Computed example of a mutant assay.
Amino acid sequence: MFPETIETDRLRLERLTRDRVDPRDLYAVASDRSPTVDEETEYLPWSPLATLRDAEERIAEFERRWDERERAEWVIRPREGEDGAGEFAGTAGLICRWDRDLVSPAVWLRKPFWGRRYSGERADALLAVAFDRLDVGVAAVPIHGENDRSYRAVERYVERHGGRYEGLLRNHAGRYDEPADHHRFSVSRAEWRAADGARTAVRVTDDGD
């Protein structure tokens, strides 16, 4: 159902599995061993990894949810010609709520790769997968109420694809066991198709090649 790899002009997204990502590499960038991880995850719904075992379990969980068609998760790597080509730049995900005809794109981008508009390019690719391949009706993007950086980035690509800002949902989610407000943006399949000029070239494959 989900493509193993997705390529855009500057990025390659590869299915996040133990075959492609060593748990030790994930632990190095997603734990307190990384000096920027607290800043990167400040508004995300997960905490930095505490142990190598946590990294192993997180990858195994991604594999399980992929197989059960609940969530697809890819590692983001800049393509050749980009600064840091081939490095672990972060992760991209699609959380599927089939009973609602809805997906939620997700992203974690490491700080050395901020400021390049990779998040928007990743979003362009995931919307293409959601609407062209999965034929989902709506993509909804929640953002922590205090995450101004992500708000601006999401606002740009949602507007580009014909979507809308739906408002602030108060105490909609939790962060470290505390209630948190969420901004919500959305794009429908019809809106995305009407904004044809905003589409970018995306190449997907199912075998990792």
Rank of each mutant, 00 (worst) to 15 (best):
F2Y: 12
E4T: 14
E4Q: 13
E4V: 10
I6H: 06
E7S: 14
E7H: 12
D9M: 08
R10V: 05
L11V: 08
L11H: 07
R12G: 04
R12N: 07
L13G: 05
E14H: 08
R15W: 06
L16S: 09
T17K: 05
V21E: 03
D22W: 02
P23H: 01
R24F: 08
D25M: 02
D25S: 03
L26W: 01
L26N: 04
A28G: 04
R33M: 03
S34I: 01
P35F: 02
V37R: 00
E39R: 15
T41S: 08
E42H: 06
Y43E: 01
L44S: 11
P45H: 09
S47C: 02
L49D: 02
R53A: 15
R53Q: 15
D54G: 06
E56W: 01
E56V: 01
E57L: 14
E57H: 12
I59K: 00
A60Q: 14
E61C: 09
W66L: 05
R69E: 14
W74M: 03
I76R: 03
I76A: 02
R77L: 01
R79G: 09
E80N: 07
G81W: 08
E82W: 07
D83Y: 06
A85Y: 15
E87W: 05
A89W: 02
A89K: 05
G90E: 02
A92R: 09
I95S: 10
I95G: 05
R97M: 10
D99M: 12
D99G: 11
D99W: 12
S104R: 14
W108K: 11
R110P: 02
K111H: 12
R116D: 01
R116P: 00
R117F: 11
Y118Q: 04
S119I: 09
G120R: 01
R122C: 10
A123V: 06
A125L: 01
L127W: 10
A130T: 08
F131A: 03
D132A: 12
D132P: 04
R133G: 09
G137M: 07
G137H: 12
G137Y: 08
V138T: 15
V138L: 13
V141Y: 10
I143K: 01
I143T: 07
I143E: 03
G145P: 05
E146S: 11
E146Y: 08
N147T: 08
R149N: 13
S150A: 14
S150Q: 08
Y151K: 10
A153G: 05
E159V: 01
E159C: 00
R160K: 15
R164T: 05
Y165D: 02
E166T: 12
N171D: 15
N171C: 13
N171L: 12
Y176H: 15
D177S: 14
D177R: 15
E178C: 03
P179L: 10
P179R: 12
A180H: 09
A180W: 09
A180Y: 08
D181T: 03
D181Y: 06
H182S: 15
H182E: 15
H182I: 04
H183I: 11
H183S: 12
S186W: 10
V187N: 03
R189T: 05
A190T: 14
A190H: 11
A190K: 13
E191F: 05
A194V: 07
A194F: 06
A195S: 07
D196P: 02
D196Q: 10
G197F: 03
A198H: 04
A201I: 03
T205F: 05
T205H: 11
T205L: 06
D206M: 13
D207W: 09
G208M: 07
